[in-house]
């Protein structure tokens, strides 16, 4: 009995290790090539770690390429999208959480439907609408589009957090003479700060990753976000793998930072939701 249990434990740990290796290997390889000097790139192609490492690729990408601008553009777009989406989603989520009104069910259904249909359908019409407004090849245009795409999910997320805050709190404030909006801003919103942070993070990551609409709406490197810049770089200078992977490592930083912040709450939060719903 103890032998089978020991075997089971070993098999379990081995399986976990396999999953970890599979999950991390591509990222490890990205990092490895980005620090491999060019003269060793081909001669030590399949070695797990190069015999010499260098930060030249990073230095070049940061000093002599347009990547710092792409990075800044992406930061502006993702940051603005996250801010605007979270503000709008907080209002919407609050309404869904606290009010009973006619049409609420339809509203929720509408939000759900926007998450179901193929967004690639909207590529052509959105281009046609934004073009005469001067919002193609503009970061503002991207922020508007990304906010619309992300705000439905963000609203549901915020609703979930508001649902967890007892409504007696703002009832008490309103009896004391505050109007509802004041109560919302001064009492409910501060209590929902963890939810606000999670929503900011989710929307930021989604906007940081978006590629299809960025490719369609942005032309030229002046306004290019990170994915557009990286893909243009790949098709133009497809020989310099070290520099491309160094750029790739840079693109990974904001996403990983955010992930490390929220990953502890991931399963926990979803369990709470599952128990309730």
């Amino acid at each position: 009995m103890t032998a089978t249990r020991l075997f089971g434990t070993l098999a379990h740990r081995a399986a976990i290790l396999c999953f970890i290796a599979f999950a991390l290997f591509p990222l490890y390889w990205l990092l490895k090539v980005s620090v491999t000097p060019n003269d060793l790139l081909y001669s030590e192609g399949v070695r797990m770690w190069p015999s010499r490492t260098t930060l030249d690729h990073f230095r070049f990408v940061l000093a002599n390429s347009e990547f710092p601008r792409f990075f800044a553009n992406s930061l502006i777009v993702s940051g603005s999208t996250a801010l605007v989406s979270t503000v709008l989603a907080a209002l919407m989520g609050y309404a869904l959480s606290r009010f009973q009104f006619r049409g609420k069910l339809w509203l929720a259904a509408l939000l759900l439907i926007t998450q179901m249909f193929p967004l690639v359908m909207l590529v052509a019409p959105i281009f046609k609408i934004l073009s005469p407004l001067g919002l193609t090849n503009s970061l503002t245009g991207l922020v508007i589009v990304y906010t619309a795409f992300n705000v439905p999910f963000a609203s549901f997320l915020m609703q979930g957090f508001f649902d967890g805050i007892p409504s007696d709190l703002e009832q008490a404030a309103m009896i004391d003479g505050a109007d509802r909006f004041t109560a919302f801003r001064h009492i409910i919103l501060p209590l929902a700060l963890p939810g606000v942070a999670a929503t900011l993070g989710f929307v930021f990551t989604a906007a940081w990753s978006e590629m299809i609409f960025a490719l369609m709406l942005i032309s030229g490197s002046e306004k290019a976000t990170f994915p557009v810049g990286l893909l243009t770089f790949v098709s133009k200078f497809s020989v310099d793998y070290g520099q491309m992977m160094a750029a790739g490592v840079l693109a990974l930083i904001p996403a990983c930072l955010f992930f490390l912040l929220i990953q502890r709450y991931l399963v926990q939060g979803m369990t709470a939701g599952a128990v309730k719903g």
Binding site: I16, A23, P26, P227, G248, A255
Partner: peptide, 20 residues
Amino acid sequence: ALVFLPWAVPTFLAGLNWAW
């Protein structure tokens, strides 16, 4: 945390990474 990490990787980078 480690096995969930790929989920945070931007999709364009995941694609490029695997292509490489």
